[in-house]
């Protein structure tokens, strides 16, 4: 780390003049290319601030080990059997949990002046958000890979084969992308990154624990099992398990896509409205 230095180079008026005259306005980029550019920015930030990968590497390892060995014996009789049941759920829980960093990061970003610059550029307006979500997908993929590798090492054997596992991961990513629009909206409404974190946690804890991630709802009181049936996370876990076990049904998949569609249709416009009217 070097201290701030003032360069001794002088600002050459001539080179400034020529830089000004050689500038031409190119055609504005399309939506995809603008989004990818913002995604590239997020990847650069990971490169420069690698600490932010802590949550996508350490969390998944911690969750998988903790729940398998802590609860495995008690809940399923053996850790090996429990892992077979738990791993798809842990994958969902981890990825869904780290989506909340989206709102946290966005909120921190907005406080900085660079956001004003982005908003004053003539680019497709949602690009900055979509780009961030694309980069998040890279982080989710990383977390998923870690969990799967760890699971395989511990003895997880998916019946659905490699295709089933890849489809399961893809499904989780699609859901995470859809869910993130809640966090972007929160990130735009709340004042500080920490309040975004707090509120997101408050939503996320009941959603993940009141689901079928850890235990089969059939062992629960019926009112609770019914409530859990309404939780979109439950449907995602069911479909993910189904894909990994090779037993998925069309209905299970449809339920997840319906949840994704609802999340996007409701929260993407809310986010864009808040974004346009941000002070």
């Amino acid at each position: 780390m070097s201290a701030p230095t003032t360069t001794t180079q002088n600002i050459a008026e001539e080179s400034l003049r020529s830089a000004l005259s050689s500038s031409e306005r190119p055609k504005r980029p399309n939506a995809l290319s603008a989004s990818l550019t913002f995604g590239w920015r997020a990847m650069l930030k990971i490169k420069h601030v690698p600490e932010q990968l802590f949550d996508v590497t350490v969390f998944p390892i911690m969750f998988t080990l903790m729940f398998t060995y802590l609860f495995g014996g008690a809940l399923a009789g053996s850790t090996g059997e429990y892992l077979q049941f738990l791993l798809p759920g842990i994958l969902v829980q981890t990825v869904v949990f780290i989506t909340i960093y989206t709102g946290f990061t966005l909120n921190g970003d907005i406080q900085k002046g660079v956001f004003d610059r982005f908003r004053s550029l003539p680019v497709w307006r949602p690009a900055v958000l979509v780009g961030a979500l694309l980069a998040d997908a890279a982080r989710y993929t990383m977390a998923s890979t870690i969990i799967l590798v760890l699971g395989l090492v511990l003895g997880f054997r998916p019946e659905g084969g490699i295709v089933g596992v890849l489809l399961a991961v893809a499904l989780v990513l699609v859901f995470a992308f859809s869910l993130s629009w809640i966090w972007t909206a929160l990130g735009l409404v709340l004042r500080t990154p920490n309040s975004v974190m707090g509120v997101s946690m408050m939503i996320m804890f009941p959603l993940t624990f009141a689901s079928n991630i850890f235990v089969d709802p059939q062992t629960m009181p019926s009112w609770l099992a019914t409530a859990i049936g309404f939780n979109p996370i439950t449907h995602l876990v069911t479909a993910t398990r189904g894909l990994m076990d090779g037993t998925v049904t069309l209905g299970q998949m449809a339920a997840v896509f319906a949840a994704c569609a609802i999340l996007i249709v409701v929260f993407a416009p809310v986010t864009m409205y808040l974004y346009r009217n941000k002070k």
Partner: peptide, 26 residues
């Protein structure tokens, strides 16, 4: 617009900042 508070990305390098804006402009 050059804002009152630095409107560049502090985490990126100077070069990356300018490339980012140039790419966004097409």
């Amino acid at each position: 617009l050059t804002g009152q508070f630095a409107s560049v990305d502090e985490d990126l390098t100077g070069h990356e900042n300018l490339v980012l804006i140039a790419r966004l402009l097409g």
